[in-house]
Design a binder for these strands. Structure first.
Lengths: 216, 216
DNA sequence: GGGCACACTAAGCGCTCGCTCAGCTTCGGC
DNA sequence: GCCGAAGCTGAGCGAGCGCTTAGTGTGCCC
């Protein structure tokens, strides 16, 4: 979709694809509320209130509260997948592409923590059909990272015995950033991204010198 | 408290410290329900029903639904801290102790996944006082792991630039096991524990030969 | 064997939830 | 300048929530 090779982890204000304006304001309000309190603890009155509207206005743009979560989750997963695909398909060694994938994926989870939190941790609140759709996207996310790891093993850059398990661990490490990252904490998303790229290269047994020129 | 050096990651059936019997049945039912649906989506009628009792029976043993979560969280964090302390204070090199800590911590998160899920992911549902108490325990957990990493760096076993950040990542990796681990999946808790111990030793830059004799 | 503490239940209170609906305002087309 | 569509609100419905209370059965002490 969009060229996501910008400066700091993505675009400045997302959700621009959601129209009309009132629908976007409601969706942004829902992201904040779900991230703060969780889907089940958030009321439709709270969402509407944050968007400066009455509770009934929500149902003009969305059929149910669950549809809001579904839309958020879908857009968020699309974005996450887009980030990983961009990193996976650029030129360079497997080590460079893995470092790029991890650092940009982590930057997104840290920098857009509210969104990432909803996307990664409120999946169970979706109904069976919506959950199945999202799980399919997650399998693509997994496949993208596993592909890089496999190529690194094939080329001799990496030393990995359990490719599936290590891929799972790498993604798990990145995703969990959304749980603990604190915007007011001592680290910027860029710093965490750089640290994590280095840790992941160590996990896959990349050579020391391959770890050095991992830019930002 | 208890000697937690048993066979596979802990005792066979926990919660034995909760008495009387009815109170324990309610608490176990609450753990299952909270893990499946989340705290806010779980009703007191559901908890009581799983325990084979009427909704009112819950309030004989617990003042509120939140007190149930508090008790679960407290006991679970005590257990997690106990596991890490046992590993941190045994004899051996920093690499051996870190591998032991990670593998037993991961075994607990995978093997007792329902409990771990509630303990690690429902913290925000607690009130301010209870949350503060639990956060103090988490800082102790963090300090225990950071201690091992620091000793490894001091002794020259490990090669770590950012001790705090790396410790955070190690714990994050272990904790997130509770989110994705599937009891019916292809891996046993022991296998995941062994894989993760190896990955963590790579993350801290332990020498190759120090990674080999990680028992269990 | 009478009295009482205790564990538990049936019923339901007050409240808030997700969601609906009748009606109001605004605005473009003609 | 009238009309209908669209966006939004105020009021409120039925349901289910956390929790309470009055009453019941049971077993232990003396």
């Amino acid at each position: 979709m969009s060229t996501a090779e910008e400066t700091t982890g993505g675009e400045i204000e997302p959700w621009e694809e959601v129209t009309p304006d009132a629908a976007r304001r409601l969706l942004v309000a829902a992201v904040e509320a779900f991230a703060e309190r969780g889907y089940h603890a958030t009321t439709t009155r709270d969402i509407a209130g944050r968007a400066g509207m009455s509770p009934a206005a929500l149902y003009i743009h969305y059929k149910t509260k669950e549809e809001l979560l579904h839309r958020i989750s879908r857009i968020g997963h699309d974005k996450a997948l887009d980030i990983l695909r961009t990193a996976a398909r650029r030129e360079g060694t497997a080590a460079e592409r893995l470092a790029d994938a991890v650092s940009s994926f982590v930057r997104w989870h840290a920098g857009r923590r509210t969104t990432a939190r909803v996307v990664q941790y409120e999946l169970d609140a979706l109904g069976p059909d919506a959950r199945a759709e999202i799980l399919a996207l997650r399998r693509q996310v997994d496949a993208e990272v596993r592909g890089i790891v496999q190529e690194g093993v094939a080329s001799g850059e990496f030393d990995v015995i359990d490719v599936h398990g290590t891929t799972l661990a790498v993604l798990s490490l990145c995703i969990d950033v959304a749980r603990w990252f604190n915007v007011d904490g001592p680290r910027t998303p860029e710093e965490v991204g750089a640290l994590y790229a280095d840790l992941v290269l160590r996990m896959v047994g990349a050579e020391q010198d391959a770890r050095r020129p991992a830019q930002t």
